[in-house]
Simulated assay, not measured.
Amino acid sequence: MKTSKPISTISFNTESFLRGKLRELEAAGILEFWAYIKHDPEPDEVGDEAGGKEHFHVYMEPAKMVQTTEVRAAFKEPDPANDKPRGCLLVEKSNFDNWYLYALHDSDYLASKGQSRCFSYDPAQIVTGDKDDLHSKVARIDVGSITPYIRMAQYQRDGKDFRSYVLGEQIGVRDIAAYQKAWQMLMSTGTERNGRPGHANEYTEPEPEARQMQIEDYPEYMPGGGEP
Rank of each mutant, 00 (worst) to 15 (best):
V143E: 13
P62I: 13
S188W: 06
P123C: 07
R140D: 13
E49C: 02
A28P: 03
S4P: 02
M152Y: 02
F33Y: 15
H199A: 02
F33C: 09
W34E: 02
Y203E: 15
W183I: 05
D48G: 08
D175Q: 13
L110W: 03
R19V: 06
L101M: 15
F17L: 08
P62A: 13
E70I: 14
D97Q: 11
P62V: 12
Y36G: 01
E209W: 08
G195H: 10
T68R: 10
P219M: 10
T9N: 01
E24H: 09
D133Y: 01
L22Y: 05
R19Q: 13
G47Y: 06
P197G: 10
S112M: 02
L104R: 01
D142P: 03
K181V: 11
Q184A: 14
S136Y: 05
M60P: 06
V58I: 11
C118F: 14
P206W: 08
S164Y: 13
Y165D: 00
I10D: 00
E54A: 11
G29F: 05
Y121H: 02
E202C: 05
L186M: 14
P62N: 15
T189C: 06
R196V: 00
L134P: 05
S16E: 09
A200H: 10
R163T: 12
W183P: 02
Y179D: 07
R23I: 04
D83T: 04
G144K: 11
H105T: 00
G20A: 15
Y221A: 03
P62Q: 13
S164P: 03
H105A: 07
A153I: 05
K160P: 09
E70W: 13
S120Y: 01
D122W: 08
N201R: 13
P41I: 03
G198Y: 04
E15Q: 15
P41S: 04
P62T: 11
A139M: 04
Y149I: 14
P228G: 13
A73P: 00
D108E: 14
Y149L: 08
Y155F: 15
T204C: 15
G168A: 06
S8A: 15
K131R: 13
H39Q: 02
G224A: 01
K53L: 07
Q214W: 07
R193W: 12
F75Y: 10
T128D: 07
N98K: 11
A35M: 02
H39N: 06
T128N: 06
A27T: 10
R193Q: 09
P6F: 12
A200F: 11
D158P: 00
E220H: 07
K93G: 12
G52S: 05
R196L: 15
K84I: 04
G172F: 08
I215G: 01
D217L: 05
P197R: 04
A182I: 10
R72D: 00
G114Y: 01
A153D: 11
Q67Y: 12
L110S: 06
S164D: 15
V127F: 04
V91W: 03
S120H: 09
N82W: 02
D48E: 09
M213A: 09
Y100S: 02
H57D: 06
A27W: 04
G224V: 10
L101W: 09
E49N: 08
Y100V: 00
P223G: 05
R23H: 12
A124Y: 08
P78F: 07
V173N: 13
M213W: 08
M213Y: 11
Y149V: 12
S164E: 15
A200P: 00
